[in-house]
């Protein structure tokens, strides 16, 4: 463990401890927030009783599917767009403005188009995530040094070989940046659309618990979201670091 990780752990622990203390002493009224330890205990009991297993599976299934669809299709769209410079020049201003549009506003339309259930949730999450992957693919392909392409040509490699043996590995660190964003956006897209419009999933369960004053359930589920995001991020960062470490000279 390096010094940063130690300090970070201490900082997070101190913050949780502070919240715990403020809740226990009722400085923060129990109506607003319950102590973190209680959230965790309740979450564990929810997991063991299986009360929300359906919702949790529903959400994570959607997240996995949307992330995969966004990453794979985003990569191939990026590859295709990169090989068409004129189309790319036309598309680039639209890509740059894409995330400026508050996509959530279009939810009702998606519901009408894709129906209630997996379809519209996955569609929304994919739409949120795919552009990050396309952009990362384009950047990654741009950053490949010209000398690598020339080397491939000198070695008389075919186009397919060049793509597979040279371009993909050379662009991989950038692609992985896109993967990280695509996963994060899939997560946000799925949970948020469940929250707003769906009848199942973790997002829906939080909204339901809030509306019915089940604050124990609500906070336990929020904690679940927080822990899931942290674990997914940590796993992706771990792979990212290993990928980067190989490039260190």
């Amino acid at each position: 463990m390096n010094i940063e990780s130690v300090l970070r752990s201490l900082l997070v622990a101190a913050f949780i401890g502070l919240i715990e203390w403020l809740c226990r002493t009722h400085v923060i009224p129990p109506m607003v927030l319950i102590p973190p330890s209680q959230m965790l205990m309740h979450l564990l009991s929810l997991v063991s009783t299986g009360q929300y297993s359906q919702d949790i599976l529903f959400s994570f299934g959607n997240i996995v599917v949307s992330a995969f669809v966004a990453i794979i299709s985003g990569f191939f769209i990026g590859l295709a767009v990169h090989s068409m410079p004129r189309f790319r020049a036309a598309l680039e201003p639209l890509l740059a403005s894409y995330y400026a549009v508050p996509t959530f506003i279009f939810y009702p339309v998606f519901i009408v188009v894709f129906g209630v259930g997996h379809g519209s949730i996955i569609a929304i999450a994919v739409l949120l995530a795919i552009v990050a992957m396309i952009t990362a693919t384009l950047t990654g392909l741009d950053r490949i040094p010209n000398v690598l392409r020339k080397s491939a040509a000198v070695m008389r490699m075919s186009r397919l070989q060049t793509a597979w043996r040279i371009q993909l590995p050379a662009a991989l660190p950038y692609l992985f940046g896109g993967v990280k964003l695509a996963v994060a956006y899939s997560f946000i897209g799925v949970i948020a659309s469940e929250f707003i419009l769906s009848g199942s999933g973790i997002g829906y369960a939080i909204a339901f618990a809030y509306n019915n004053f089940e604050s124990d359930n609500m906070y336990a589920l929020m904690l679940l979201v927080l822990i899931s995001v942290t674990l997914i991020n940590a796993a992706l960062n771990f792979f990212d670091r290993r990928l980067q470490a190989r490039r260190q000279r």
């Binding site: 948020a192 929250f195 929020m222 979201v225 942290t230």
Partner: peptide
Amino acid sequence: LAGAVAEPILLNLYAIPKVTLYPLVLL
């Protein structure tokens, strides 16, 4: 040092679907 300590925490906060925290904000 402070930056290195804070960065992963901030990235994590960025990746949270913040809409689920709305009951807390409302309270």
